[in-house]
Nucleic acid binder design. Structure first.
Length: 215
DNA sequence: GTCCAGGGCCTAC
DNA sequence: GTAGGCCATGGA
């Protein structure tokens, strides 16, 4: 089977098993950006607590984050782990949006900039690496970029489709070169991979109930 | 008590 | 350009 057909078949299997994931959790683009930063290497449950703390303290919007002392933000986002680092990251992101776009998140994520140009801009912000950047572009910016995470690498290398030693950009290109550039597909595909990573199949695809069994 | 979760930065070689 | 340490909570 062609790689293209295989990738679509894998998505179909996951979709049938888990149902559409309706990602990203978050009401606004800014909330998605905050969530993308706070979820770095921590479970989403912890992130929810941190976001709620920020909202309750009225220290949530870019201007609030920009103004607030670092220590105050750190204390509010404590449940999200690495809170001192992440407070700096939130401030770096808020600073970028306030200073260059007067706090206008839509202007920051303007699609007319072009995907790869905007990606470079997002990556230039301190604390934003490739996975966080692609999450922001895909889920807040609604641009067709593929998000690669640790689950993606683990699962697709087990399936023999990715090398164990593949780097981030190589893996991203693999998906983007073998799937139609459909942001809805990329959106739910990544969410399905995370669902698979969370729920079952530590030994994908070699367990009885794995949705990717005998793929 | 241990393990690990929706990473990225910095430094050394 | 890459391997390894650091960051430092909460739930299973």
């Amino acid at each position: 089977m062609k790689k293209k057909d295989l990738l679509l078949k894998i998505y179909e299997r996951l979709l049938n098993h888990f149902g559409h994931r309706n990602w990203w959790p978050g009401d606004t683009k800014w909330e998605i950006i905050i969530g993308a930063i706070l979820t770095q290497n921590v479970s989403w449950k912890n992130v929810e607590k941190a976001i709620l703390n920020l909202k309750n303290a009225r220290c949530f919007e870019p201007a609030d984050i920009y103004r607030a002392p670092l220590e105050e933000i750190a204390e509010l986002i404590r449940p999200s782990r690495y809170y001192n680092m992440k407070a700096k990251k939130l401030k770096a992101m808020a600073g970028h949006i306030i200073e260059k776009y007067q706090g206008n998140v839509d202007a920051f994520l303007k699609r007319e900039k072009g995907l790869e140009n905007l990606r470079k801009e997002v990556l230039s912000i301190w604390g934003i690496g490739p996975e966080t950047a692609d999450s922001i572009l895909l889920y807040a910016g609604e641009l067709p970029t593929f998000v690669v995470d640790a689950y993606t690498k683990r699962i697709f290398s087990r399936l023999g489709l990715l090398s164990e030693t593949a780097g981030y950009d190589e893996m991203r290109s693999f998906f983007m070169n073998n799937l139609p550039p459909d942001r809805e597909l990329f959106n739910d595909y990544h969410a399905q991979i995370v669902a698979l990573g969370h729920n079952i199949c530590k030994n994908v695809p070699r367990c009885e109930i794995c949705p990717l069994k005998e793929i």
